[in-house]
Nucleic acid binder design. Structure first.
Lengths: 264, 264
DNA sequence: TATATTTTTG
DNA sequence: CAAAAATATA
């Protein structure tokens, strides 16, 4: 039997809004450790990894490891029916092919339960090796989102270059070129406004803006985002989820072309 | 060399949002006096005249007169990438076929530069004669915008009639007729709420609401709008741009038909 | 690309 | 309640 009670239900709503556009169906894995998910996006280019640790739940009961195949769009639809201040409880009986979401309004005046069919999904749980990154940029998540959105109005890909001084985002398209430079800045009033760059060696990598823009759907989950870069390795875009865990997006860099219209 | 630094960058963003729907391509003319533009709309019915005086810029350097052919849609796209509090600098080297827009965030932590190709545009700089107007109406720009929007849901054209008492906006359409009368009113708390009518003789003129609604895109630039009318002359709809200049729209009146479906 | 509709925010 | 922003749609 599974029973997870999450007081800050809005967290789960935001989590599903962040990943439902990237991944259609995925297995949620429940263990004594926590509630997690790992899935490739529909075009098998990006990867999402979510972890909500058991300690973050007000009540966490998971008698045996359970993998629940879920259509994330449908789950997001159901969670939309929960108020932002509602307490959400996830319930599943052993061997059952359904999961139940229960929403309690803060005043306990309204109690809803939504039952959803589970599905069988081939899970391809990929081990993600812990890597050393050449550069780790921590910046306000809203700023990162703004830059990705702005640049995607000019071009399709972004070249992210990190030096000690800052991080540069560059793109080019039919109407021109664009460069945005964010300087390292730790002397801010609020720590969440800081831009912090940890760099072992300079990195320059190109990514498809379409996916980065999809990742920034997670912006409401955290004020800060962490971007970890190494040459040849997928970038990791991480949003910490307060007291509970994280959501991480992985995206392989594009092999850079010298020519805009390469003729092999 | 050209280098114009505008501290209130949002002004330029608003200017482009106001005219980009009306005009596709136009020449921006830079001289020691200021930064200006004059262009007919794509269907050659309306005319836009913009002036941003050099005094309104924090720094204004224009070594020689320069005419920059620009696709306004693309320029608007790039300016959308500037924050509303950003400082915008427009740069162009002599003889270069590009222009650069630089955006500095208020904290200087984020510096962006966008480069855009210039284009050759046949400029048809029309001298606009200074005219004496029979009537000049000054009213809150939001009210004018609301009236044009409301009336366009009933009819396609508006008859604007000015008398000493006030200004009347009338339309008719398939579903009925509508009249909105705004009385002269100078006894208001805030001067920008006033409706002031200067009239030498009564005027009644008909205009296509489609264009007026396009003009009202400039509403964010000013609390007040000035509408200058003379029989047989194009109406002038002017929005003052604080400390800098104006944006003026000209539109020829329709020759009034007695019949909605005239058969000559 | 422009506009209709929805959602958010002052 | 209304203005602005974001989003959907034609």
């Amino acid at each position: 039997m599974l029973e997870l009670r999450l007081v800050q239900g809005s967290l789960l709503k935001k989590v599903l809004d962040s990943i439902k556009d990237l991944v259609n169906d995925a297995n949620f894995d429940c263990s004594a450790t926590g509630f997690s998910l790992q899935a490739m996006d529909s075009s098998h280019v990006a990867l999402v990894a979510l972890l909500l640790r058991s300690e973050g739940f007000e009540h966490y009961r998971c008698d045996r490891n359970l993998s629940m195949g879920i259509n994330l769009g449908n789950m997001a639809k159901m969670l939309k029916c929960a108020g932002n201040d509602d307490i959400i409880t996830i319930k599943a009986d052993d061997g059952s092919d359904t999961v139940t979401f229960m929403f309690e309004s803060p005043t306990q005046d309204k109690i809803s339960d939504f039952e959803m069919k589970l599905m069988d999904i081939d899970s391809e749980h990929l081990g993600i090796p812990e890597a050393e990154y050449h550069a780790i940029v921590r910046m306000p998540s809203s700023e990162f989102a703004r830059i990705c959105k702005d640049l995607s109005s000019i071009g399709d890909t972004v070249l992210i270059s990190v030096t000690k001084e800052g991080v540069k985002f560059s793109t080019r398209g039919d109407i021109g070129t664009a460069n945005v430079v964010c300087r390292q800045n730790t002397t801010v009033d609020k720590p969440e406004d800081a831009t912090i760059i940890e760099m072992n060696e300079p990195v320059s990598l190109t990514f498809a803006l379409r996916y980065l823009n999809s990742f920034t759907k997670a912006t409401p989950l955290s004020n800060m985002v962490t971007i970890s870069l190494s040459s040849e390795l997928p970038v990791v875009v991480e949003y910490k989820i307060a007291e509970m865990g994280y959501i991480r997006f992985y995206l392989a860099p594009k092999i850079e072309e010298d020519d805009e219209d390469p003729k092999p």
